[in-house]
Design a protein around this nucleic acid. Structure first.
Length: 401
RNA sequence: GGGAGUGUGCCCGAGUGGUUAAUGGGGACGGGCUGUAAACCCGUUGGCUAUGCCUACUAAGGUUCGAAUCCUUACGCUCCCA
């Protein structure tokens, strides 16, 4: 295995919290493959780049020669993680959980090396636990210790209900670490409390306690709020290559290095060099953003896909060429066609009034020619086979039904 | 249980009887510029085949020639006291 200091440079790159760093060094000095744990909650089927951040860090551990254990929290999902929530989470059905878990694994193996990966389902040991065992584990925690947790404190003070079973979430997650004998547990920074509970439980049960390593929560493509499906600022791992490339190109320049470091497969050395280059002006931000976009597309869609996506991107967005494949929209074409209604019909406008405004604002083109304001009526025959365009991005080919 | 507020368009927020589809900001969309970044400039942001018509300021009633603005009730939210 490579020298400890080298390993630490890779491991600490982009990490938010390592508790305690000194103990991590000691573990690495044992010069053996460490067991790195990441628990995932299969509560949502769609993964985005933010979810990939801890997975990327896991991959770096693998590349350094360590072993990774991915725990599918199909047992803990029945409880629902209280992290960052101010209400009790709804409990999911087992079918839903199983389905989400499968999607998660499908995505995760695109990032992780399957050779150095163990996947477990914690329902295996959590749901089969008998009361005696449960009591033994629970006795290691005090109520005060669990209540210390910020989320609980807030809810308790705010008098919002905390169901008794929610106390068990950190306890069960901690028990996972005991079962798989974790050396390091990873998570987003909001997971720190849960990770620390694992450290505590292991110590109380006479084991060498795990190291807690948290990663920052990645900002979305707006560069401000954390990446989240509900904010609509996410890059989905299953997004099409073109979407993935395009969305990446729209992130603020300030986010380039952060995305590279946290979510891309670029090496720490490369990222360090680029960061330096961007700071002193010897690297071009646009070129580096393209570099990032290609790297992400290659990782999720296969080698070479990034370059292909870039070419399409150039033709469409830089050179403003019409895309090759334009969806066809069959519709009735009378003698004359009321264009605002057609814009509404094809989904370019929410109402025909909005369609009118779009035309008046010069945003509507027919076969590449901008229509002058007030052009609401168009000859039906001239529309057959014509390309209708709204703004720079939306195209549709009109054909007679 | 008692008391005080408050509810406006996608969001925030002006407006306290009369040229009001309702000031302003954010967001979004369109145009220019361009690197689908930032910054900047301009336009649009209730519906309707439309110099007009219709529906709108939580909901339902009421007062008035006239209501987002006043009154009543309901619902939602906030705060204080017990």
């Amino acid at each position: 295995m490579i020298p400890v200091e080298e390993q630490l440079r890779v491991i600490t790159s982009g990490a938010q919290n390592i508790v305690p760093l000194e103990d991590l060094r000691k573990k690495l000095e044992q010069d053996r493959p460490l067991n790195i744990k990441l628990g995932v909650d299969p509560t949502s089927p769609d993964l985005h780049l933010g979810h990939a951040v801890p997975l990327r860090k896991m991959r770096q551990f693998q590349d350094l020669g360590h072993h990774v254990t991915l725990i599918i929290g199909d047992g803990t999902a029945l409880i629902g993680d209280p992290s960052g929530k101010n209400t009790t989470r709804p409990q999911l059905s087992s079918e839903q959980i199983a389905q989400n878990a499968q999607t998660y694994v499908d995505q995760a193996v695109k990032i992780l090396d399957p050779e150095k990966l163990t996947i477990c389902h914690n329902a295996e040991w959590i749901l089969s636990m008998d009361l005696k065992k449960l009591l033994e584990v629970c006795s290691r925690f005090t109520v005060a210790r669990i209540l210390e947790r910020d989320d609980f404190t807030k809810r308790y003070n705010a008098k919002t209900p905390i169901a008794l079973h929610e106390f068990l979430y950190p306890v069960m997650q901690a028990y996972d670490s005991v079962v798989i004998k974790a050396d390091v547990e990873m998570g987003g920074n909001d997971q720190l409390f849960n990770l620390l509970a694992g450290r505590e439980l292991m110590e109380k049960m006479g084991m060498e306690p795990q190291i807690c390593l948290t990663m920052p929560l990645l900002e979305g493509i707006d560069g401000v709020r954390k990446m989240s499906k509900s904010y609509g600022n996410y890059i989905g791992l299953t997004d099409s290559v073109d979407d993935m490339f395009g969305k990446t190109m729209s992130i603020p320049d300030e986010m380039i290095v952060r995305y590279m470091r946290l979510a891309s497969p670029l090496s720490v050395d490369e990222v360090d060099a680029i960061e330096q280059g961007l700071a002193d002006g010897s690297c071009d931000p646009n070129a580096e953003k393209r570099h990032l976009a290609r790297a992400l597309c290659d990782m999720y869609h296969g080698a070479g896909e990034g370059e292909a996506a870039e070419e399409r991107f150039n033709s469409r967005f830089r050179d403003h060429e019409m895309p090759e494949n334009i969806a066809e929209h069959p519709c009735e074409l009378g003698e004359t066609v009321y264009l605002p209604a057609l814009l509404k019909e094809v989904g370019f406008a929410g109402s025909s009034s909005e369609g009118r405004r779009l035309i008046d604002g010069g945003g509507v083109k027919l076969n590449g020619e901008a229509l002058p304001g007030g052009t609401y009526e168009v000859e039906g025959a001239s529309l057959d086979g014509a390309v209708l365009q709204a703004g720079r991005l939306r195209y549709v080919r009109i054909v007679r039904k």
